[in-house]
Design a protein around this nucleic acid. Structure first.
Ligand SMILES: [Zn+2]
Length: 147
DNA sequence: AGAGTTTGACCAGTC
DNA sequence: GGACTGGTCAAACTC
């Protein structure tokens, strides 16, 4: 038996998508898109804050000379329905934002830079356990200027 | 191939 | 001193 017959069975060398792969891909295709703010961010962490029952993602500006950070927070919904996403900016940018609203979608070559993959992140849960004490700290609650 | 993303583990601060 | 939380890093994975 054995005798690796040339391409064995589950060889995903180049073209061989298994159901699991497709499932994974499909799962991955469901990502949360954050509103573009004109800056490029790199996600470096995500955690679930059980205290508030919300997810929190951590982003950092991609500029080498920029240390601005961004924090995205949203409620956890098992229905797949996300509440409102609150974005908190920390630090200041030492550069002007380059990405802008209009003038995007322009590619001489069809490099498919489509804005489809602008800001897509996967939602997952991190288990946090233990709720005993309560802490009171000025939870900055930014209010909107106006509804 | 590379950049960007994902996820668990680690660290620090707090009580 | 231990326990818990929030924040960050790094390896692994994806595209
Ligand atoms: Zn910046």
């Amino acid at each position: 038996m054995s005798t690796h017959a040339s391409t064995t069975s589950m060889d995903q060398s180049e073209e061989g998508l298994n159901r699991e792969d497709e499932q994974e891909m499909e799962r991955r295709s469901h990502r949360l898109k954050l509103p573009e703010d004109g800056y490029e961010w790199k996600k470096y962490g995500q955690k679930f804050i059980k205290n508030i029952g919300k997810f929190r993602s951590y982003f950092k500006c991609q500029r080498e000379n920029c240390m601005a950070k961004k924090r995205a927070e949203w409620s956890s919904r098992s229905d797949g329905e996300l509440g409102e996403i609150r974005i908190v900016y920390e630090g200041v940018h030492s550069h002007e934002q380059h990405l802008s609203s209009s003038s995007s979608a322009s590619n001489s070559l069809g490099t498919a830079t489509s804005s489809s993959n602008a800001n897509q992140y996967n939602l997952l849960t991190q288990v946090l356990g233990g709720d005993h004490h309560h802490h009171h700290q000025s939870t900055s609650t930014p209010r909107h200027p106006h509804a």
